[in-house]
Design a protein around this nucleic acid. Structure first.
Lengths: 248, 248
DNA sequence: TAGTGGTCTAGACCACACC
DNA sequence: GTGTGGTCTAGACCACTAC
């Protein structure tokens, strides 16, 4: 078998945890014990344990030992892209407005700006196969280098809009998802004539100093929006190579 | 400074990526170069790089080098618990029904069972401060040891219901989130008399062999349900200890 | 004092990429 | 060939825990 020892160690322990043989709180064999068991050096054993730790399976307490972690049952990975989701993929957009305004009270609070700060306002409609499926509004505090050119805005997602100015790695994003009935204006934009609710996604961007750098609100027709999430098994970004050799 | 060398290396490179000095696709200094720069052994340098790799900042190609990864802009961490969310926390539940039935066509497909397989059906109402806020239905293929005792069901979340039988580590969970108008039955349960939409969360559980082991659908009053998600910076589960020493 | 995990070194051999 | 990353060893010293 060509499976590296450290992966073998990690897999064996993971198997014990998944099967329930090791339960949350239970101690793992000590590093020295594992060294003997696998005839491996301590660094190799530690690498296996480090992998399990980074995947959230175990944790260590200096001087005491390593233990099985309580799994986080309430976290999921949500896939969200303004223009792509389960039921529709935006194939056309219409730029309704690009302008520079002053913030109202809600924006002053939300973006943490003064009432004199210039705000870029962008309003768009998203279409799928000719049908309007979402109404989209963005607010960005104006800075030099901000996108106010139509071409840069038309098909850009929110993170892309600010990416011109800074590294996408440095941006923290928040989503708030809720539902509401459309007002008359949105009904008009989205061709809604019956009792159809909206899915609303508020997206807020922060820089590394936790300063808000943008607020976006997207109003989806309820029948065109499904969001998908799943529990993440960060089952190592590495194992791809060895996926065949799962033999014990 | 007491900051370990490997963390120092990781932080320095992370800083270069966050600031935009290093962009996606750019090569990182080779391991040998970093050894000399930091007067460290190769294992120590590799530990720093491994940390960055596990956090999604970089990736390596054998024989070529390490490079800055394209950030994943569409993934968020969603916090979801049937009984806890932004606007309400369930403080009372009412068990409407616990019974064993046979699956209809939708359940046969969704749970991948035969039409003779017994299904546990659980229907509940969730309350916040006396108000009904959600109507909840669960379907579980019946196995020995399944919870059919009221006490075990009344306040249990979906993953907890099946946890009696297997390790929570081994369960994969999927969520599908959408909105719709309530039918007459749900309107009655949730005291809805006006134009109020529902937030619907479908939760599906799978075992390690990707066999469905449960389907749950929770219908929230739209005004009592907001979901929250954020971009994850897995900024290491470790750094806690050194958070002060961020001086370069 | 003995055992634990945390950090680190200075080597080694390998497969791979590039010239 | 040289340089790269991938795996691994056999030690070392430290701080901490438990007895």
């Amino acid at each position: 078998m060509r499976l590296p020892i450290y992966l073998k160690i990690a897999q064996d322990i993971k198997e014990k945890i998944n099967s329930g043989e090791l339960k949350p709180g239970d101690p793992i064999y000590s590093e020295n014990t594992l060294c003997k068991t696998y005839k491996a050096s301590r660094m190799t054993v530690r690498r296996g344990l480090a992998l399990l730790a980074s995947e959230g399976y175990i944790y260590s307490i200096p001087g005491k030992g390593s233990f099985v972690r309580e799994p986080d049952n309430n976290s999921y990975t949500l896939y969200y892209n303004e223009m792509k989701n389960l039921v529709n993929s935006v194939d056309k957009t219409k730029l309704l407005e690009v302008s520079i305004t002053l913030p109202n009270q809600r924006l002053i609070n939300s973006l943490q700006v003064t009432r004199n700060k210039k705000i870029i306002l962008i309003r768009r409609l998203f279409f799928t196969e000719g049908e309007p499926v979402a109404y989209d509004v963005k607010y960005l505090p104006y800075c030099k280098g901000m996108p106010i050119v139509e071409k840069e805005i038309q098909y850009a997602t929110f993170p892309e809009m600010v990416a011109k100015k800074m590294s996408l790695f440095a941006i923290r994003k928040e989503l708030i998802i809720y539902t509401q009935m459309p007002d008359e204006e949105i009904k008009k934009y989205l061709n809604i004539y019956s009792d159809l609710p909206l899915m609303v996604v508020e997206q807020k961007l922060y820089d590394r100093e936790e300063r808000p750098i943008g607020l976006g609100i997207t109003y989806y027709r309820g029948d065109y929006c499904k969001l998908y999430a799943e529990s993440y098994f960060s089952d190592s970004l590495l194992n791809e190579k060895y996926k065949n050799g799962v033999e014990t």
